[in-house]
Design a protein around this nucleic acid. Structure first.
Length: 848
RNA sequence: GCCCGAGUGGCGGAAUGGUAGACGCAGGGGAUUCAAAAUCCCCCGGUAGCAAUAUCGUGUCGGUUCGAGUCCGACCUCGGGCACCA
């Protein structure tokens, strides 16, 4: 008898699928379609175990749906623009394009042996000019529909390298290469008007029924709708009033000062006139642009000396401060502070000795605020000190509504709906991205490129030996003719955020070679993505941007109405985590190392090559920049793709993070060999036996459990059931034909996870055609019903005994039997039960 | 700092509010074998006990319920996101 040998089986069946064109997606009007998509990878050059897990999940769904009669689209491509390619060029002197395409070739050669049912004929990379040219066409359409504009926004500026830094390149407020203190600097940049869609994007979240609740919540919070009051403080010097937005207008009587952002027009005006203000603003602008950096930085303020009048009391004057924690991007860039009911304001007022005025107390505890602000939930009733609108005891919500009403009636303020969501800044001052297809003309201003001139291709002859954007210093690339007047003009040198690339690739897969962004018939047939699978780390930005893009593409006629929400169902798989190994270079900067280069022992970790001690940082998301990635190729080489697939699907629930450990692959491999052995025995078996009915019952239960597991993304429980059925089958004494039937069904049920082995077993047992094309088995409901049931008997919630009774036995009868068990008698110790609860078919609980 | 999750044996994990630990890995014992590999069988949360069994046990503390891993409240720890990592 031959033994299970993945290395001969796997290439054989992959060739068979290729020859039959099994996974090429075709529009078939006779069949329902199913579009399954996993978030496409960044071509780092090596697949890691997270990819294996992610794409195997999608493959299980794709193969299952194909068997269930759907015409399946399951494509693959490359999210190929981005910083790592430029970093590699800087580090090794190569070219981002060569680096990227080499990586793609390398990764593809690693992915092919996995046997994923991908339609490789649709493959593309976002750095292909054929792709980004269409993206440029979309940009021009968006410009025409007024979905894009230019404005100033802050970036991380490295004053030594004279270059813009990504957030990732700012470490503890300093530039990663220069080590210089980073400052926030304004630059004119391109923006998508995603905020115009705030309300629509928020409301439509309710329609995303098959998205995880946590993702919907995160998106709703991100959009951040709030109701508040907009009003202006009059200045005592007669200057332009300061407009503020507040969500707590009810606390206006507790106002302590008016604060403005260092980027507020008034701050800039004062900065120009007063060196002291300029000095403060320069300090306040130190550090990175992230919300985290701004919110955790020390709170700094500067009293401008300006005074404003309190809107409710013309004699009450408030000082105007510039404060580093106020964002110009949110609301009006100006606030009033109420320290008694906001911790940040309180800390600030204590620091600068500003007054703290209580506006309300807890109902039975009129204790003035000291070190901690009093911030009850807005739904709690509180006692008001002196509410101008005449409230005494009322909730925050009631008071806010009353205040807005009062302000509107008096005419000094207006109720306002505010969203936290900001417009999407897409400009990047970098080379390896999609060029923004506009031209700057001395006469015509900013002019979109003509579509017939697309794609605007990146020049190849660039260098990365000095910081900054190589497009800016290219000798000729910028030179062009103005599309409007024809005079000499200059190209835009900013490229697009890579989130743009990934915001419409799912639509492009429906017609990847088209000379327009999409083709109506293909988009109509294949959209939407029926099952999208990806990491939870993309819960907000990528998914929100894609939802915006789908709407914008619909407006421009590139997607049908139904695709405004492009992802019908979303599954967010957990991340594969791993410890990070790092050493430090001469300047004390972190240098990361791959796990396979590190020797880990009880006494610590060292580099295999040099024996240098390695710092071990606890498990974190696997990322190429931290090099804490595990190479699955070894498992594949040693055991085969099916073992790797079986193992990653069996080991943990797919939505949960998993800490990668190598143990277990061996066990998975043994199990597959066992299945092969049992199949080979059964293939040669003849004659009748006993227990055929029992085996068939178990088979139908297995069909149901495995199907439910796949449908519910609980692949690990499907696999547990398949383990159980393997045991049943190996012990069964049933007749040969029944066993063959059971084994063929097992091959079908295993096929989504271990497709090569399944084909082999299927062929061995005389299955017709390819198992990949066989119809999915359906459980016979009649075979699932049991006539007797074993019920646990509890006394006060603790299990004391059990009884096995007919399924439909009368409650009173069950109660009688239960009370008569030894375990119950022992627990009751002669006492009469107070109450007996019988849940038919499930449990009996005796209350003593 | 703000938003969102997760926490169950040595390990990965299972469990419509109804027998906690299915299934697997690791470990222990046995069979087979000249021996080994491979395979097959049995045991496997802690404590006490020869055992039957009792008792404790799902991050911590409290609550709801006949009954809580599951629901509610507070907390602890870990993870993700925070708009230029992808």
């Amino acid at each position: 008898m031959s033994r299970y040998d993945a290395s001969t089986i796997e290439p054989k069946w992959q060739a068979a699928w290729d020859e039959a064109g099994t996974f090429a997606a075709t529009r078939d009007p006779a069949k329902p379609k199913f579009y399954v998509l996993e978030m496409f990878p960044y071509p780092s050059g090596r697949i890691h175990i997270g990819h294996v897990r992610n794409y195997t999940m999608g493959d299980v769904v794709a193969r299952y749906k194909k068997s269930s009669g759907f015409s399946v689209l399951h494509p693959m491509g490359w999210d190929a623009f981005g910083m790592p390619a430029e970093n590699a060029a800087m580090a090794t002197g190569g070219h981002p394009k060569d680096w990227t395409y080499n990586n793609i070739a390398e990764m593809k050669s690693q992915m092919k042996p996995m046997g994923w049912s991908l339609d490789w004929t649709r493959e593309f990379a976002t750095c292909d000019p054929e792709y980004y040219g269409q993206q440029q066409a979309l940009f021009i359409d968006f410009l025409e529909k007024d979905l894009v504009y230019r404005k100033n926004a802050v970036v991380n500026w490295d004053p030594v390298d004279m270059t813009v830094l990504a957030n990732e390149q700012v470490i503890d407020g300093k530039g990663w290469r220069s080590g210089a203190e980073v400052e926030r600097r304004e630059l004119t940049q391109w923006f998508f008007k995603i905020s115009d869609f705030s309300e629509e994007l928020l409301e439509a979240i309710d329609t995303l029924k098959d998205w995880p609740e946590k993702v919907r919540l995160m998106q709703a919070n991100w959009i951040g709708k709030s109701q508040g009051l907009r009003f202006a403080f009059e200045r005592t010097d007669g200057g332009a009033p300061i407009e503020v937005y507040t969500t707590r207008p009810d606390t206006l009587m507790g106002a302590s000062f008016v604060g403005i952002s260092p980027d507020h027009p008034l701050a800039k005006e004062l900065e120009a006139a007063d060196p002291k203000v300029a000095e403060f603003c320069a300090t306040a602008r130190k550090g990175g642009t992230t919300a985290e950096a701004i919110e955790t930085a020390e709170k700094l303020g500067y009293d401008t000396g300006l005074r404003v009048k309190h809107p409710l009391d013309p004699n009450w004057e408030l000082p105007v401060w510039i404060a580093n924690f106020i964002l110009m991007d949110y609301g009006t860039g100006a606030i009033f502070a109420c320290p008694a009911h906001d911790q940040r304001d309180l800390d600030f007022c204590r620091k600068y000795d500003l007054p703290v005025i209580d506006t309300f107390f807890a109902l039975n505890d009129p204790k003035p605020v000291e070190g901690e602000a009093f911030v009850p939930p807005k739904s709690d009733k509180v006692k008001w000190v002196d509410h101008f609108a005449g409230l005494d005891e009322a909730t925050g919500e009631e008071a806010i509504a009353a205040t807005i009403d009062y302000a509107e009636k008096q005419g000094w303020g207006k109720g306002h709906t505010q969203y936290r969501l900001r417009d999407w800044g897409l400009s990047r001052q970098r080379y390896w991205g999609c060029p923004i297809p506009v031209v700057h003309c001395g006469d015509c201003g900013v002019v979109p490129e003509k579509k017939e001139n697309l794609p605007i291709e990146l020049p190849y002859d660039v260098s990365f030996d000095v910081p900054g954007n190589p497009l800016d210093r290219h000798p000729t690339w910028r030179d062009c003719a103005c599309p409007s007047c024809g005079k000499p003009a200059k190209r835009e040198t900013d490229t697009m955020d890579t989130f743009v690339d990934s915001s419409w690739y799912f639509a492009r897969f429906t017609a990847p070679r088209a000379t327009t962004p999409t083709v109506a018939e293909d988009a109509d047939y294949w959209m939407n993505v029926d099952q999208y699978i990806g990491g939870i780390e993309h819960a907000i930005l990528h998914l929100l941007y894609s939802r915006f893009f789908a709407r914008a593409m619909h407006i421009c006629g590139h997607l049908p109405e139904k695709s405004k929400e492009p992802f019908n169902a979303l599954f967010t798989q957990g991340m594969v985590t791993h410890a990070i190994y790092q050493t430090r270079d001469a300047e004390g900067r972190a240098v990361y190392h791959f796990p396979e280069d590190v020797e880990v022992s009880e006494s610590g970790a060292t580099l295999k090559a040099t024996g240098e001690a390695v710092e071990v940082i606890p498990s974190a998301k696997m990322s190429k920049s931290k090099k804490n990635v595990v190479d699955p190729l070894e498992i594949i080489a040693q055991y085969g793709a099916d073992t790797a697939r079986w193992f990653v699907m069996s080991d943990s629930p797919p939505e949960r993070d998993v800490e990668w450990t190598a143990s277990g692959a061996e066990g998975a491999s043994k199990h597959l060999a066992r299945v092969y052995r049992i199949a080979a025995e059964i293939a040669e078996a003849t004659g009748t036996g006993e227990g055929d009915e029992d085996l068939l019952r178990e088979m139908h239960k297995t069909i149901k459990a495995v199907t439910d597991g796949i449908e519910g993304f609980a692949f690990n429980t499907s696999i547990a059931k398949l383990y159980g059925f393997t045991n049943t089958l190996s012990k069964s004494k049933a007749g040969a034909e029944t066993k063959k039937t059971a084994m063929r069904v097992m091959a079908q049920l295993m096929a989504p996870m271990t497709p090569h082995l399944a084909e082999e077993v299927w062929a061995m047992l005389g299955g017709e055609g390819l198992v990949a094309e066989a119809e999915w088995p359906v459980a016979d409901e009649a075979m699932l019903v049991e006539d007797t049931v074993t019920m646990p008997i509890q006394v006060n919630g603790k299990r004391r005994d059990e009884i096995t009774v007919p399924k439909d036995m009368d409650k009173a009868e069950v109660e009688k039997l239960a009370l008569d068990t030894d375990g119950v008698k022992r627990a009751l110790d002669g006492n009469a039960p107070k109450k007996v609860i019988v849940v038919p078919g499930r449990i009996v609980n005796v209350v003593a």
